[in-house]
């Protein structure tokens, strides 16, 4: 599942999968800006059939954090 999540990040942010590590954070690379964030949230919603709470959208600030937040929606990475 972590691999699937990594690939979603890579596709949504248009970066190589190798760059998607736990430390990857919002605004730490040009691709993960506010527009990239919206693309990422849309991709996660679609891939897992969920609709994240706004608080979680704000809180989703790193790859590591994404795994924690998605676990709340029953997505285990």
């Amino acid at each position: 599942m972590e691999e699937k999540l990594r690939n979603i990040f890579a596709t949504a942010l248009d970066i190589p999968a190798e760059k998607v590590v736990d430390d990857l954070e919002f605004n730490s690379i040009p691709e993960w800006d506010s527009i990239g964030h919206l693309a990422l949230i849309a991709a996660l919603d679609e891939a897992f059939g969920i609709m994240m709470e706004t608080e979680d959208v704000i809180d989703l600030s790193s790859f590591k954090k994404a795994k924690e937040i998605l676990a709340k929606y029953g997505v285990e990475a």
């Binding site: 919206l38 693309a39 991709a43 919603d45 706004t54």
Partner: peptide, 10 residues
Amino acid sequence: MQYAARLMMR
């Protein structure tokens, strides 16, 4: 708009 934009993004 907020929720719709998330769907339109797809």
